[in-house]
């Protein structure tokens, strides 16, 4: 009996879905940005959402975060209902994107302190020191955000997103303004985070190479619909091509031909 329970527990852990979306739809008037999509994010996996501009990637992410109200569909995060357990969910996940920034007049460290308080982080000092070193921000920790480059701000924002050791990390084009070296390091860091802490990551990006290397599974979104999903190599096989980039171009061009 106990053995069975343990076994069930392990199985559950392996295939536990930390995010489940069913029939998720968002229409802005006539335009439907996301149309009836189903997907799940499993514990300890990196799921990439890719697709051309306007495919509905950001809208999907904002619905998961409760920033945008879905027109219809169901979302479960960590087994909880976002409408009822908003605060609990938000305390256990985090978000970063290249289009958010941080209060300009506060320094890097002050900003991290403010958010550490918001997330009720224990051992604030140690956690911040750890993240400052992880993102190579030590030399600029006392500089106000206003004086930083966009790449530096992106790194601070990523550090912010790891403050609460989130179980789920939602990243909307986080590497858009990073130089290749830092982008590469960030990628490694996220990969490590997943392996070490079992963090689940939902990731969007335009950079096909990055997606191919980083993600365990992909969702290919176009005009608000999932047109392919699975392992990167399966998607490549399905559409025929050398790599993801070719597949992406193929799909995008087919679109244009139809228009």
């Amino acid at each position: 009996m106990t053995r069975n329970n343990t076994k069930n527990k392990i199985i559950k852990m392996i295939i536990e879905n930390v995010i489940e979306a069913r029939g998720l739809t968002k229409c802005f008037g006539q335009v439907c940005a996301v149309q009836n999509i189903d997907f799940e994010l499993r514990r300890g996996e990196i799921l990439g959402i890719l697709g051309p501009n306007g495919a509905g990637k950001t809208t999907t992410m904002h619905m998961l975060l409760g920033l945008t109200t879905p027109s219809s569909g169901e979302i479960k995060i960590l087994g909880l209902d976002p409408d009822k357990d908003r605060e609990e969910i938000l305390g256990r996940i985090n978000f970063s994107s290249s289009y958010v920034s941080l209060p300009y007049s506060l320094t890097v460290r002050e900003n991290l302190l403010v958010f550490a308080r918001l997330y009720s982080v224990k051992n604030k000092k140690e956690k911040i020191a750890e993240l400052l070193s992880l993102f190579q921000l030590e030399s600029i920790k006392n500089i106000p955000i206003r004086k930083l480059s966009s790449g530096q701000i992106t790194r601070v924002s990523l550090a912010k997103a790891l403050l609460n050791d989130p179980e789920i990390l939602l990243l909307d084009e986080p590497t858009a303004s990073l130089d290749p070296d830092i982008a590469d390091k960030t990628k490694k860091l996220l990969s490590d985070k997943k392996d070490r802490d079992g963090t689940s990551i939902l990731y969007t990006s335009h950079n096909m190479k990055e997606m191919e290397e980083l993600c365990d599974r992909l969702l290919f979104l176009d005009h608000g619909r999932i047109i392919a999903s699975g392992l990167p190599e399966d998607i490549i096989k399905k559409f025929g091509g050398e790599n993801l980039e070719e597949v992406f171009l193929k799909i995008a061009r087919k679109e244009q031909a139809q228009v």
Binding site: G66, L67, R86, E87, N94, F95, Y99, S101, L118
Partner: peptide
């Protein structure tokens, strides 16, 4: 400072 999103995705009500 484009900080509203950071605030509203935190546990702050």
């Amino acid at each position: 400072s484009r900080n509203l999103l950071n605030l509203f995705v935190s546990p702050l009500s």
